[in-house]
Amino acid sequence: MRPFDYLAPTDAATAVRTVATNPTATYLAGGTNLVDHLKLGITHPDLLVDTAAITTAGITDHHGGLLIGAATRNSDIAADHRVRTRYPALAEALLSGASGQLRNMATAAGNPLQRTRCPYFQDATTPCNKRRPGSGCAAIGGHTRGHAILGASDHCVATHPSDMAVALTALDATLHILGPDGPRTLPCTDLHRLPGTDPTRDTVLEHGDLITAIELPHNPLARRSRYRKVRDRASYAFALVSVAAALETTDGIITDARLAFGGVAHKPWRAYRAEQALLGQPANDTTYRTAAEAELTDAQPLNGLDGGNSFKVPLLTRTVIATLRNLDQR
């Protein structure tokens, strides 16, 4: 790990200017991903700017929804009764991620910004276009069990690891951002990007942008939401696939739905096509299967050393069916 300076500013605007004007500066929040990456030699900042004193912790009522301060710990979000009852998918997503200790450290803003767990990205001795542009993608032709089936490119097949971000994407959350040009908002669905030819960038945020809060909009549908994560270990493991879903039915007919997938793409995958396929249809396994398959028509599983990741297609389909069935029966 290379040496770096450390600043703990108390004024957000100054901090944003500091980072925005210094390409080697980066924000430090919970540190659970950044400190890991410093040790792995994935990133080499010259300056860490601590966000502890420039972001707030806490959840407030906001236009019928909730506003989650950027510094709010993951465990505190999941423990909040308003979140648990009005946005259960978000609480479930948070609780299905990491461990109790990590959830006590990781922040609301930091969680969606965590970077891929692709083992080649994390091993600085192997090629990786995300880590070292132009060096190649070692995952292609390598171990791809955890990799993408949707939206990947020849340059990168990594998946996004956050559970929380999948729930936020399904629940139409909005980010409050302070940038060098002042505050703005950004829908969570637009935060993450596909790798394309530039996998170095995970999100559309500009250098210096500081997430200050996450807004959960008022939506009764979110009360009937849940997050279903499928993983290899019973706990403390990243998703093979995950589904955040919300479902509203009237007389057995689906009237509204939200669906997002994790573990299958470079970003939390909002399944708009599947949502469309659900609307107006009877709430049953056939409908759910048709919807999942509609979303997965473009799926491109990867070959790989241990048999690749083609299992994710049927696994995700079956997980969608199980999750929606479970929601309907709730």
Binding site: A8, L28, M105
Partner: peptide, 13 residues
């Protein structure tokens, strides 16, 4: 008072 991981906590914080 809360459980955290010391290995991912920078001492300066």
């Amino acid at each position: 008072g809360r459980r955290v991981l010391a290995c991912l906590t920078l001492a300066v914080t």
